[in-house]
């Protein structure tokens, strides 16, 4: 799998979530994603960036462009927050430890093709998602 480019961007403020949406949108459009696929991956990114900020106390997003044999967009949201104790539970629609709707993780998973959570309690969380063109 050929990684064409990697770019890291901070997720430390609410404005950063807006910037993440814009960056993911521009990149997906450049890769030739359909409008619906752009919308799906940007929405997933918005949910995951908010989780990084709110639940993970801030972190960063790595944006990886994949080219060959398939074209795709991979996003890695990384934080050094409290971690997720029970990942299965966190993925369940409606589950929240905050004041959200509890749709972010499960919803983001449905909006992408590949989804992976790596989380250690007390260490932090990395959520990696990939959407293929």
């Amino acid at each position: 799998m050929a990684v064409v480019s990697t770019e890291a961007t901070p997720v430390a403020t609410e404005s950063d979530i807006v910037a993440v949406r814009r960056l993911v949108r521009e990149t997906a459009a450049k890769l030739g994603f359909s409008l619906v696929d752009q919308t799906k991956v940007v929405t997933a990114a918005s949910e995951l960036a908010r989780n990084t900020l709110i639940h993970g106390n801030g972190g960063e997003m790595e944006l990886i462009t994949l080219n060959g044999p398939r074209v795709g967009l991979r996003l890695k949201f990384h934080d050094h927050g409290p971690g997720i104790r029970d990942i299965q539970l966190a993925l369940r629609d409606g589950f929240t430890t905050g004041s959200g709707l509890g749709l972010g993780l499960g919803g983001a998973k449905r909006l992408v093709n590949e989804f992976e959570i790596d989380s250690q309690v007390g260490q932090g969380t990395t959520v990696t998602v990939t959407r293929w063109k």
Binding site: T39, K40, T43, E47, D93, G107, R110, L111
Partner: peptide, 14 residues
């Protein structure tokens, strides 16, 4: 609401 937004909302679970 744009069609792409509506499609995405349903998949999101909203």
């Amino acid at each position: 609401m744009r069609p792409a937004v509506a499609i995405t909302l349903v998949e999101l679970g909203m």
